[in-house]
Design a binder for these strands. Structure first.
Length: 863
RNA sequence: GCCGGGAUGGCGAAAUUGGCAGACGCAGCGGACUUAAAAUCCGCAGGUCCGAAAGGACUGUGGGGGUUCGAUUCCCCCUCCCGGCACCA
């Protein structure tokens, strides 16, 4: 029988600490080992009797070691997973490795380690780090994208895409990064024209044969379905909307004018196709402007060396502006070609110019220039003294402005057409519609939609990626590898260099094969896939990770994805376009294959802020990198995790301060010491029900406890401000410390102390699992903490009995009164007016208005 | 240029619906314990001014204006910082 006075006897003697100090290293390694020996702890299987919850953090690239951004990301996801477990959900919480990619090749070159070995070693290290940090992952579902068990399904999907005509080969101008020595997708080129991995290296344009995926087939749906994604940050939706860049307009063919002189102008009947969103202004078109790289400019300059020089100058200007990242501010230059085109609406001849502000990669690379109704055209026309012809008059709420000559350029669509032949008098909207219909009737144009989004170029001239399962046969041309031959294994013995094209092309036993159609000799495709293919569907693989007959079982995937996808996805905003648009595309494609029923992969997306130090992004060159290993060694995993949640709300950037994590370490020690002193599982009252009547001290603790339960629970349901959750738990602990004497003097019943401690451990469990488990055990609790029910909020117990009401006079705080929580307005006002300080402040004045905000405050207006 | 987000003590931040600005933590100061230190526990703390003190006055959420009994919160104008997009026709 333990004596009540010696709390330490409650601690099992084998585990008894030397003193009250919390030894995080000892406790954390103990639990970490236990958890690793019991991998089924976090296992999840489809279970129709429970509500499912799929929480996912973006899988890391195994670069070698975790950084603080990872720790923050996974701490958020792990807290949520644990909270959902405690709330009785069937939780899926997996982790994997986005393990193909260029750094492995660089390591092979600089350290002479094979990419596979380097990668697997990094994975082992990072997995150990994750286990030390105590993240609750179901490792039985681990996905490693560089292994054939995974990438064979990339190949399988590629074959399906090819069958459906969604994968195709095309020679085109592509982005080439000289440092990566490979082609990049448009999404991987930064807005300043540099490579996403080499932010100082300008991407070159090369003409190459490449494999493309027809993401544009889904452009409209990708845009439309953004509306459904109300669980995504607006920022990300806006970025995707911009990226897709849908624009409705009209294509209009301008015939080249041959009456003049058609020499060197291509075949007779040639036209210049122009894209415009404002066909209603076409009677005001006074020139046609071509991008300097427009193919017809090539024809033109073939016989005009002088013009060629000038056009080359324009190309150089464009390139330079792109390099400097200010293509928007380039000074407009152009050159008249000496030729004319014919406006099909009025058969007018308009001069053809080449201009540096026309981009070849948008629309058709040619525009009609309407100076009166477009700012850029206006600027250009003024500079080169081109005709400016007004064809729209404004319609405005202000009668003064309506139908009077506007300031130029007048770009609004609220207008009426003039000087526009039979369209005169129509509104802009009417005219756009009728003019597009007319063009279609006469066969010189049509209404159309253009996108900024281009098809996804996935060929990479690199080694460490998924081989593209295609063959080239002299007789049969492009042939798909047969499904039964998958996976096309990536050979291991390869000489890796960053020059000389695809490393695989130098492996004869890989390249030379036989054509499955004719049996003759064939060459394999030696490019590999963009690694964004791997991450486009990996989260489906988690649902059925060991399946060797299919990428995953549809029924299983449907259980976990439901109709709306992953319940909560958490990661950095840097993937807002790349990964998150590819994933959406892949989901729609898989749905159309019949593998899925959901249209979107992710129901709710959370983008956490960056971890910075001293106001700057952590980087080796700045020397401000904080290593998770060091933090864990110095303060423990719980402290590192708790601090990464406490220092800032998760959606904001977090400025790392070592002194801050020290404070968290102190807090954890404080909680621990409270339990060392007050956990007495062998006390006869420990498991008795809490008495209904409590002393005022105990009642105050109870009130605070229930207020804390509410604050923490509400945040998990809603806004995720874990920093304030943790602050609330700290307040509760401060209240407990304040009641220390009362507890020692037994003014607080032991049964109630037990309940408070149990609740406190449960509240702490999502954020600091190690300490929580240790305390749970100290309290003699048997069941798994992970499945222990989340504490229930009781509004009656949280309610204050007395409240303090501030009294303002003319909006300035002048006194306070304490009243019962249910006090009536009359009573509160009476108390307020009776208050000494208030009396003094209103002496000799007249109270003209009394305002009482129930439970909040009193304001007296005096004169 | 356009679209987002932001600016609050010495620092990270809080204030959830227009109602006590600065919770919680860091750093700081004071006290207790200690031979001493560390650790721990308790307390103080936006600024300026008055007061020996208790206490009091004024002021304060990037700047200026407005609405309101009352504004960090709503409206208008402006400055700066971060992110995205950008001659997109």
């Amino acid at each position: 029988m333990p004596t009540e006075d010696n709390a330490k006897t409650a601690v099992p003697s084998a585990e008894r600490p030397n003193d009250e100090r919390y030894d995080a290293q000892r406790v954390e390694t103990k639990w970490s080992e236990r958890w690793q020996q019991n991998p089924s702890l976090y296992a999840a299987e489809p279970n129709s009797s429970k509500r499912k919850y799929y929480v996912l953090e973006m899988l890391p690239y195994p670069s070698g070691a975790l950084h603080m951004g990872h720790v923050r990301n996974y701490s958020i996801g792990d807290a949520l997973a644990r909270y959902m477990w405690m709330n009785g959900y069937n939780v899926l919480h997996p982790m994997g490795w986005d393990s193909f990619g260029l750094p492995a090749e660089n390591a092979a070159i600089s350290a002479n380690v094979p990419p596979r070995e380097w990668t697997l070693r990094n994975i082992a290290n990072m997995k150990a780090q994750m286990n030390r940090l105590g993240f609750a992952y179901d490792w039985a579902r681990e996905v490693t994208t560089c292994l054939p068990e995974y990438y064979r399904w990339n190949q399988w999907f590629f074959l399906k895409l090819f069958e459906q005509g969604l994968a195709y080969r095309k020679k085109s101008k592509v982005n080439w990064c000289p440092k990566c020595a490979t082609v990049l997708a448009n999404e991987q080129v930064l807005s300043n024209g540099c490579c996403w991995r080499h932010e100082d290296t300008l991407v070159e344009q090369r003409e190459l044969e490449q494999w493309f995926l027809r993401i544009t087939k889904y452009a409209d749906e990708l845009l439309r379905d953004l509306e459904k994604l109300d669980g995504w940050p607006d920022k990300v939706r806006t970025m995707q909307r911009n990226w897709i860049g849908r624009s409705e307009g009209t294509l209009v063919d301008f015939k080249l004018d041959y009456a003049e002189n058609h020499k060197g102008f291509g075949p007779a009947g040639s036209t210049i196709s122009v894209f415009t969103t404002r066909v209603d202004t076409i009677f005001g078109a006074t020139s046609v402007q071509l991008a300097p790289e427009h193919p017809i400019v090539g024809d033109l300059t073939a016989t005009n060396a002088d013009l060629r020089v000038k056009v080359d100058q324009l190309i150089a200007e464009q390139r330079k502006a792109k390099e400097a990242g200010d293509i928007g501010e380039i000074e407009k230059h152009g050159v008249f070609t000496g030729r004319y085109a014919i406006n099909p609406y009025n058969n007018e001849k308009v001069p053809i110019w080449v201009a540096n502000y026309i981009l070849m990669d948008y629309g058709t690379g040619a525009i009609m220039s309407v100076p009166a109704h477009d700012e850029r055209d206006y600027e250009f026309a003024q500079k080169y003294k081109l005709e400016i012809r007004l064809v729209i008059l404004p319609i405005s709420d202000d009668p003064e402005e309506t139908m009077t000559e506007p300031a130029l350029p007048f770009v609004s669509e609220r207008g009426m057409l003039i000087n526009s032949g039979k369209y005169g008098g129509l509104s802009c909207q009417q005219a756009m519609q009728q003019m597009a219909e007319y063009a279609e009737q006469k066969g010189f144009g049509k209404a159309t939609v253009t996108y900024r989004l281009k098809d996804w170029g996935i060929s990479r001239q690199r080694y460490w990626g998924t081989p593209i399962p295609m063959l080239y046969c002299e007789k049969d041309g492009i042939v798909a590898a047969p499904e039964k031959d998958l996976p096309v294994i990536l050979p291991e013995k390869v000489e890796i260099t960053l020059t000389g094209g695809s490393p695989l092309s130098r492996v004869p036993e890989f390249v030379h094969t036989t054509c499955p159609k004719c049996g003759g000799p064939a060459r394999r495709e030696t490019d590999t896939m963009d690694t964004f293919v791997d991450s486009s569907w990996y989260f489906y693989r988690y649902t059925d990770a060991r399946n060797d007959r299919a990428p995953f079982d549809s029924k299983t995937a449907q259980y976990w994805f439901g109709d709306r996808g992953i319940d909560q996805y958490i990661g950095g905003v840097e993937h807002a376009i790349l990964h998150l648009i590819y994933s959406r595309f892949w989901t729609k494609f898989m749905r159309d294959l019949g593998l899925l029923t959901n249209d979107e992969p992710v129901e709710r997306l959370f983008t956490q802020g960056m971890v910075i130090k001293d106001g700057a992004k952590m980087s080796k060159s700045l020397g401000n990198v904080v290593s998770p290993d060091e933090m864990v060694a110095r303060y423990g995993a719980d402290a590192a995790r708790l601090y990464s949640l406490f220092a800032a709300p998760p959606d904001r950037d977090l400025d790392w301060q070592d002194s801050g994590i020290e404070g968290i370490q102190r807090f954890l020690g404080r909680v621990y010491r409270f339990f060392v002193r007050n956990a007495r599982p062998n006390h006869p009252d420990w498991r008795k029900p809490v008495p209904a009547e409590l002393s005022p001290v105990a009642r105050a603790i109870q009130r605070k406890l229930h207020q804390t339960i509410k604050r923490v629970s509400d945040d998990f349901q809603g806004r995720w401000h874990f920093n304030t959750c943790i602050a609330a738990i700290m307040e509760l602990v401060n209240v407990l410390y304040g009641a220390d004497d009362a507890i020692a003097k037994k003014e607080v019943p032991v049964a109630f102390v037990a309940e408070v401690q149990r609740s406190l451990v449960l509240l702490l469990a999502p954020f600091a699992p190690y300490l929580a488990h240790e305390l749970w055990e100290m309290m003699g609790e048997q069941g798994s903490l992970l499945r222990a029910p989340w504490p229930k909020f009781d509004a009656a117990l949280a309610k204050e009995e007395e409240i303090e009401i501030p009294v303002q006079i003319n909006g300035k705080l002048r006194g306070r009164v304490t009243v019962p929580a249910e006090a009536t307005e009359e009573f509160v006002l009476e108390c307020a007016l009776a208050d000494e300080k208030v009396q003094a402040a209103i002496a000799g004045k007249q109270v003209v208005k009394k305002i009482y905000v129930p439970g909040k405050m009193v304001n007296l207006v005096v004169k």
